[in-house]
Design a protein around this nucleic acid. Structure first.
Length: 797
RNA sequence: GGGAGUUUAGCUCAGUUGGUAGAGUACCUGCCUUACAAGCAGAGGGUCAUAGGUUCGAGUCCUAUAACUCCCACCA
């Protein structure tokens, strides 16, 4: 009944079948316990790479497992399709820049692009066998989600957790946008420490100052030295001359000036650096802006105006040299905070922006994080480490275009912040106006033109999935969600912000469990590069060439939270397994044609395999409950190979020759084969949904009411087996193994007849299964003896 | 500088509460066994990173150390 397995035909066929029959739909009205998954919405910024497949497939294992354990599984899908990454993709695709066209025109292009990619993404995930409910797909740019995102913001505003303020914000001069602390990435950058002469007023002496940013000389407002630093004590209170610009600044003291760093004297520029801004506030120093939003020098820089900072730095160094103001240069490598998207070193700018409070509530965020089960548990450490170190509120204003608009206007006359009513949402303040006049009577408003940071929206994915404000009953039922799966790189963003939002909105946890997956590395210490991910490691290629099931198998070999090196070897193992499952099923089922499963008196070895199966399944479930998908799989795999190499080998004689062993012996084997294969396939279905469905449909389905194997429940085989049967059966395998070893060592064929087998020191169980041992080893006679355990083999040639 | 993870066979990794070191793979040997040669059977291969400690007994528990990786801080 089973012929050759052709995954290229079979896999798409079943994928369509699952979609057509809505096998993975969430049943809103079901009474079953809900298991809900807060699926990561992939960022629409390019291609899906193998890392996504790795992480998403691992989550899919959980979804399928829970479904088979009888849960009503809510497994939605989403796309994070707004924000800077998407804009950059669109700019690249069309070869345009967002600011060169109207907002509407650009947004239109974004929508087109996003739609195209989302179709591709969706097809790929379906092709990988991801069992999401594709009727429950959300897009962060959709009106529905925009509404929820704005609702979230207004809720925070009402609660005093979102505020509008002028404060130092992290600025990316390349992307020309403010960014959040979480979007920074430390990078080691080679730089030069320039030792520069600051001449002391009314003196020929100079103060030596070391700086990596001489282009900021024009913004210098003072020089700081440490109050304990004896070297500079005489200079404190005096003025020094800023080189090239020739204006004077005072020498002041502050503890933050590090005696050991540079020369111990530091110039303060009230711009571009955290400490500088701190000093600005502490000493109320004048603010001098040296750099434009686009990363060019301002008029303050004099002749360097308009130059990019890097070029200005080079020119200034040249000029300092020429004027004998440069003492020496030191090559250094220092960690610089850069924008993770483009790698450009950040600047600090003072801007009026919207912020969400984080710093004041760190304690709650830590407590809530602790209440969540993190798998693996040490990943909570990464979360708490981040929260501990958060030292600025979350700037959510983005001076961009393709995002959720910040729903506020400012009164033209009194500046009051006007927000829309909830039933007006989603609102684009650039298009619509407030319904009422301002309290001051003014009817003219300035619309906010910024959009939200995309995390502002994606941090409410539990609320989106749980129908916040749309279906109160569902919301209560679904929150907190059961599981958040994601990779370790976004603990500090997605996980953190989501925990913060749920705390602020509903004073609850967003989910009960978090499952953290690792990264796929191209090689040791080598992340996946564009070129690699486009070639042999691309998910499309792997699924096309090796099948989705084999690709999925590979993802099960990874250990939770740990990075994995991409290895073709593991794909080979998966291919072998799939092939073996096919062959074993084909073989077993060939003895089950026209078979009516009826409970018969079982022979010992048939009881043995059932007992072994039930043991294995217990371990399998225990591992899954701990989200240990890889260990669960290896448990199942080991059982399966044992089933093939020992059980089938033993039992096939009875199946082939009922005329020798009896009809009842055949029926016993048939029954054990039937139930064990069926239950085993259900467990494999979690990992290998396609091939298992193919086998299920071609045979087992006719005994079941379920449409698909993926609607079956995992269950133990409900057959009572004798107490020590598992151990006794293993002893049989041990004896069989001895026979095989003897033949192998003596270069004999395995079917060679053993004229006499001596079994010494084994239990009486062996006698009860003598016919099986004789058959599998081709043994003529067995002699039983007492004494120490020993197996003797005699072959007459 | 703070924190985390890892270190077990040539390679990739298991090893639950302490009780004689495991799997897969590679290598080698044999076997075309009435499912599968993409198969089957078998052999060799390890001071469990190092040094101490607790214990009758430590891969496992404790203390140091080292190496590798990651997260965070460090931007004068």
């Amino acid at each position: 009944m089973l012929d050759k397995y052709n995954f290229k035909e079979s896999e798409p066929k079943w994928e369509k079948f699952w979609q057509d029959n809505k096998i993975y739909s969430f049943d809103k009205n079901s009474k079953k316990e809900i298991f809900s998954i807060d699926t990561p919405p992939p960022t629409v910024s390019g291609k899906i790479h193998i890392g996504h497949i790795f992480s998403y497939t691992q989550a899919d294992f959980i979804a399928r497992y829970k479904r088979m354990m009888g849960y009503n599984v809510l497994y939605p899908f989403g796309f994070d399709d707004n924000g800077l990454p998407t804009e950059r993709l669109v700019e690249k695709e069309f070869g345009i820049r967002a600011h060169e066209m109207s907002r509407e025109e650009f947004r239109e292009k974004c929508m087109q692009t996003v739609e195209k990619y989302e179709q591709e993404f969706k097809q790929l995930f379906i092709r990988d066998g991801i069992s999401s409910d594709w009727d429950r797909v959300y897009n962060t740019i959709s009106p529905r989600v925009q509404k929820l995102s704005q609702k979230s913001f207004l809720d925070l505003y009402k609660k005093g957790k979102a505020y509008y303020g002028e404060k130092p914000a992290i600025w990316c001069p390349e992307c020309q946008v403010s960014i959040a602390q979480a979007e920074l990435e430390s990078k080691d950058i080679a730089s030069t420490f320039n030792h520069i002469k600051f001449f002391i007023e009314h003196s020929d002496e100079y103060l030596e100052i070391a700086t990596t940013r001489p282009e900021l000389l024009c913004a210098c407002v003072c020089v700081f030295v440490n109050p304990e630093d004896k070297r500079y004590a005489p200079l404190v209170g005096k003025n020094v001359k800023v080189p090239l610009y020739n204006f004077y600044v005072p020498v002041l003291t502050d503890e933050k000036a590090d005696i050991d760093k540079g020369t111990g004297a530091v110039m303060c520029c009230t711009f571009g650096d955290e400490t500088d801004l701190l000093w600005q506030q502490k000493y109320n120093l004048p603010i001098k802006e040296a750099i434009t939003d686009g990363g060019r020098m301002t008029a303050l820089a004099g002749k360097y105006e308009g130059l990019k900072t890097k070029k200005a730095r080079e020119d200034i160094i040249a000029d300092l040299k020429e004027n004998d103001l440069l003492i020496k240069q030191e090559e250094i490598v220092h960690a610089v905070a850069t924008h993770e998207r483009c790698g450009t070193p950040m600047e600090i700018k003072i801007k009026k922006q919207w912020f969400i409070s984080l710093v004041d509530d760190k304690k709650s965020f830590l407590e809530n994080g602790e209440k969540i089960n993190w798998y693996p548990s040490f990943m909570y450490g990464r979360y708490s480490n981040w929260v501990d170190n958060v030292d600025r509120d979350w700037c959510v204003s983005r001076q961009r275009y393709f995002g959720v608009p910040i729903p506020v206007w400012y009164c033209k006359k009194c500046g009051k912040i006007i927000t829309p009513e909830e039933d007006e949402l989603p609102v684009n303040p650039l298009v619509s106006t407030p319904k009422k006049a301002c309290e001051c009577g003014c009817t003219e408003f300035i619309p906010e033109s910024d959009v939200f940071d995309t995390w502002q929206t994606s941090s409410i994915t539990p609320q989106i999935n749980a129908m916040w404000g749309e279906d109160d009953e569902m919301y209560k039922k679904l929150m907190p969600m059961s599981l958040r799966p994601n990779a370790h790189d976004i603990i500090r963003t997605w996980d953190f912000y989501t925990i913060a939002k749920s705390h602020y909105h509903s004073n609850c946890l967003p989910w009960k469990n978090v499952m953290i997956s690792g990264f796929v590395m191209a090689d040791k210490n080598e992340k996946i590069s564009k070129s690699k991910s486009n070639s042999k490691m691309s998910p499309e290629t792997l699924i096309d060439e090796k099948s989705a099931d084999v690709t999925r198998y590979w993802t099960s070999t990874g250990s939770l939270g740990r990075d994995i090196i991409f290895s073709e070897e593991e794909f080979k193992n998966g291919a072998k397994l799939v092939n073996k499952i096919w062959n074993a099923s084909k073989f077993v089922l060939s003895f089950l044609e026209n078979y009516e499963p009826t409970h018969t008196q079982l022979l010992p070895m048939d009881e043995w395999i059932i007992a072994k199966f039930n043991d294995m399944q217990k371990h399998f479930i225990a591992y899954f409950e701990k989200y240990e998908i890889g260990l669960a799989m290896s448990e199942l795999e080991r059982f399966f190979w044992n089933f093939c190499d020992n059980y089938i080998e033993i039992t096939k004689n009875r199946l082939y020759k009922p005329e020798i062993y009896g009809e009842k012996a055949k029926q016993s084997a048939q029954f054990a084969c039937f139930v064990t294969l069926k239950e085993m396939l259900k467990m494999f279905a979690i990992y290998l949904p396609h091939i298992t469905e193919e086998i299920y449909q071609s045979y087992f389905k006719k005994f079941d009411k379920e449409i698909s194997i993926h609607q079956c429940k995992l269950s133990p085989i409900e057959i009572k087996t004798p107490q020590n049967i598992a151990v006794s059966g293993d002893e049989v395998c041990e004896i069989v193994s001895q026979i095989r070893r003897y033949k192998s060592e003596n270069n004999l064929s395995l079917k060679e007849e053993v004229s006499e087998l001596t079994v010494q020191g084994y239990s009486d169980f062996i006698k009860r299964v003598e016919y099986d041992i004789k058959a599998v080893g081709n043994v003529k006679e067995i002699i039983y003896r007492d004494g120490d355990k020993f197996v003797g083999i005699k072959v007459e040639k």
